[in-house]
């Protein structure tokens, strides 16, 4: 049975999850890949980050988007390989992030006691887009380009697998 969660996530929301649980996530997720992580950490270091990432969920994703008359629409948006973001993991979690969505797994240790890693199936971008209801905002689009910009997305019942839990238990490499 799936656990239904809504962002922002609280400590108890994530501490109760176990690797292998299925979560249906609703609320807001922030896409971020390599360049966005560098940008976020740089601005946070200067106290100039225009986002509150307390309880937030970061999505390792560079979507295909289309600009229509009603604004941006996400066409396809599966996860990218999370291991590239291992080098930013400690920094991003220290901003209060409670969940990271990606594929392929990450270092489990930094998650202990505070956050979880959710996996969505890589390559299944057309399916993921079904759970994305709206683009709320996009940050640094001109500077970083479409794949690397931070897309602030509203999701509904996004079906995710807890792949690394807050005890550091992981589904990878078992």
């Amino acid at each position: 049975m799936a656990v239904r969660l809504r962002t922002p996530l609280g400590g108890e929301d994530v501490l109760n999850l176990r690797a292998g649980d299925v979560v249906h996530l609703s609320g807001t997720v922030y896409t971020a890949r390599d360049s966005a992580h560098r940008k976020i950490l740089e601005l946070a270091g200067k106290g100039e980050l225009p986002l509150d990432l307390g309880g937030a969920v970061i999505y390792h994703c560079g979507p295909v988007v289309r600009k229509g008359c009603g604004g941006y629409e996400v066409v396809s948006a599966g996860p990218t390989t999370s291991a590239r973001m291992n080098r930013y993991l400690e920094g991003i979690l220290s901003l209060g992030v409670r969940g990271i969505i990606g594929k392929g797994g990450m270092n489990p240790a930094p998650f202990k006691g505070r956050a979880v890693y959710f996996a969505f199936t890589g390559g299944a971008g057309s399916l993921a887009a079904k759970s994305i209801k709206k683009v709320r905002e996009v940050l640094w689009l001109d500077e970083l380009g479409t794949p690397e910009a931070v897309w602030v997305l509203e999701v509904e019942d996004f079906p995710l697998l807890v792949a690394i839990d807050a005890n550091g238990s992981s589904l990878y490499g078992r």
């Binding site: 994703c61 560079g62 295909v64 066409v75 396809s76 390559g123 299944a124 057309s126 887009a129």
Partner: peptide, 8 residues
């Protein structure tokens, strides 16, 4: 008729 994976 949409890209299956977002990494085209």
């Amino acid at each position: 008729s949409i890209p299956v994976c977002q990494d085209t």
